[in-house]
Design a protein around this nucleic acid. Structure first.
Lengths: 218, 218
DNA sequence: GACGCAAGTAAACGATTGTTGACAAAGATC
DNA sequence: GATCTTTGTCAACAATCGTTTACTTGCGTC
């Protein structure tokens, strides 16, 4: 085996278009733009930035490679578009403010354990992927730090709290846990977490997040 | 900017040889072999498999590229060597059996929060890196699953426990948390976890791991 | 001290990848 | 219905990367 340098571009067999019919029937620039971002986000999240080729993304959408450079200037530009797209969706979904801490935790858990055919875990997974490009990685870092503050605020943190630093750190540990679980479950496919049901996984994960985010016990 | 396709090979500036003088003075095959594995493990862990070039690794050691193919057949072979090396070290360090759960947790925490100049966190980080090669990724998955069982056993699990499945899952969540923290701290450099001191980080991390691994409360 | 083998180097090949500029087709505008 | 703009395609270029082959250098052996 491996008589050639070539490496199969991951036989992950992602369908060309997922849920929500982005069927790209006619010639609609905005639609194909969105379809490209969606396909790229999937590939980047599952295979990583470097392992993903622009030809693969274009092929997923059913479009010529050159369109990526036309719409996003470069591969890095496409990655940045994926990042800000994910950042927006996280703000309006997983990290949207709420009055109850338990509600925030519940929403985060749901994002993590979601069925693999949904895109939610991939949004989180993308936050772990480095592109090597300074701009894109700066956006990634800012998104994670913004996410941290949102989570800390949802856990009842206020900026004049004397323990604000410790609370921020605990919120980030909660994010780290979530990202680690998604990584092992989606990308590494490690047992038993990979094939654990949503309920089996939600229970201990909720316990951990509560231990980190719930108002100070002890 | 970005007038060229080229991307700077991550300005991480890893010194050619780290601690423990692997100074490669004379012509010693075994020594350069070890130096190559060490340098490769660093690069693979921090930059990822695809982003790491064999030329960079060889340059880190101060040796010609062709030696990699001579000693390890291929880049994938070098990656596999890194994997089994890390697997061995984890067995004899972070996951070595102990009579006290707290001692196991303490050792795992130390591996995670260790000063960035030590190699310990990188060993964990490598377990998250996919190569795209089937053999290497199989080794990676087996290492993680083996690590899970070791941790579960250290937490007082026995195979005839009726809750063995749940305990295995919790042990893997503990690993996921550790990996997530190392990722955010070492690779993504997200604040505040990136610049948190070892003590600041050890306290909440220990609490989480205890919540997952400590004998069943409630 | 010549010989032989192991350790290391140099240079090139083949394949892939991101990018680009010229060209073709489909809609809108008048 | 002719024309112009937008949307998409085709083909090629330049660079990089993993790998290989032939060559050189150093060390031990008889």
């Amino acid at each position: 085996m491996s008589s050639k340098t070539t490496m199969s571009p991951q036989p992950s067999d992602i369908p060309a278009d997922a849920d929500e019919e982005l069927i790209r029937s006619g010639r609609d620039a905005a639609l194909t733009r969105r379809a490209l971002v969606r396909a790229a986000r999937r590939r980047f999240a599952t295979d990583g930035y470097r392992a993903t080729t622009v030809r693969t993304i274009a092929s997923d959408v059913g479009v010529n490679v050159a369109l990526i450079n036309r719409y996003f200037v470069s591969k890095e530009g496409l990655f940045e578009a994926c990042m800000s797209s994910t950042s927006d969706e996280l703000d309006t979904q997983a990290a949207r403010p709420s009055k109850s801490i338990d509600e925030v935790i519940e929403r985060l858990v749901e994002h993590v354990v979601n069925a693999p055919d949904r895109d939610d875990p991939l949004q989180l997974l993308l936050l772990l992927r480095s592109s090597g490009d300074e701009n894109a990685d700066l956006i990634r870092r800012r998104t994670l730090e913004h996410f941290t503050r949102r989570l800390a605020a949802a856990a009842g943190w206020s900026s004049d709290d004397p323990d604000s630093a410790a609370i921020l750190l605990r919120a980030q540990l909660a994010i780290a846990t979530s990202l680690g679980v998604v990584m092992l479950r989606t990308s590494a496919a490690v047992e038993p977490v990979a094939s654990a049901s949503a309920d089996e996984l939600a229970e201990p994960l909720t316990r951990v997040l509560r231990a980190l985010l719930a108002p100070t016990e002890r």
